[in-house]
Design a protein around this nucleic acid. Structure first.
Lengths: 112, 112
DNA sequence: GCATTATGCCTCGTGTTGCAAGGTATCGCG
DNA sequence: CGCGATACCTTGCAACACGAGGCATAATGC
């Protein structure tokens, strides 16, 4: 039975981070702004959300980090690992199934 | 200024309950099963989730309750109030905006 | 007659997690 | 020289979903 709900609508920050990092290496501060911009301000995750998630994902092997200095600024770039890609697919699937289910209830569809 | 995210993907149980009760009066035990059935087991909220939310919604004036005895069983039916309908519209709108934003990021749409 | 299941209500404790607030340091601009 | 932007980070709080339990009655099964 694989996974139950367990805080079923949670893990969205994680999902967004993994998705964005899949396109290209990114660093924390950049992710904060990217999420704000791409969602047109609908989602505004603070650094207090992003950094802990980033650390957790790296600890779990979903992301790998590399320090780079740009313009005299030290940045920690994160890249998606194979495990991370797997995790992303997993989360995206869960999210999709969940929102479909909620949507079905919201529009009041025939239930079986 | 207006509202920020504040636990942006939360309140889903509340949303589902309000939506279901809008169609007809329902009682706790019934809601637990209705959510499971309508979501085809994608969402399985336990009674430990439903009842506290029900009580909070009534306390806030979004629901009104009435005790009825059916088949020698005592049930507490909840009905949507005007305030509750307002709240439902509000939550549904938020949810819609949120999922749209997430979807936009997931499919990698052009941002502005 | 007795036990198990289903119905129906409820609460408590735990763990997760999103988040604001605060802390540090460097760079560029006025 | 000061201020805002860039860039990293941690701590503490509050909310919340959830499992695990607890209580009571009706129906079903053995």
């Amino acid at each position: 039975m694989a996974e139950n709900n367990s805080n079923f609508m949670s893990g969205v920050p994680e999902l967004l981070i993994l998705r964005l990092v899949r396109e290209k290496e990114m660093y924390g501060y950049e992710l904060v702004q990217a999420i704000r911009e791409r969602s047109r301000d609908a989602i505004a995750l603070g650094e207090g959300v992003i950094y802990p998630v980033l650390h957790a994902l790296e600890r779990d092997g979903a992301l790998s980090s590399s320090r780079k200095t740009v313009n005299g600024r030290s940045r920690v770039y994160y890249a998606l690992t194979a495990a991370g890609a797997q995790r992303l697919d997993n989360l995206a699937g869960n999210w999709s199934r969940l929102t479909d289910a909620i949507h079905a209830i919201l529009i009041g569809v025939q239930h079986a």
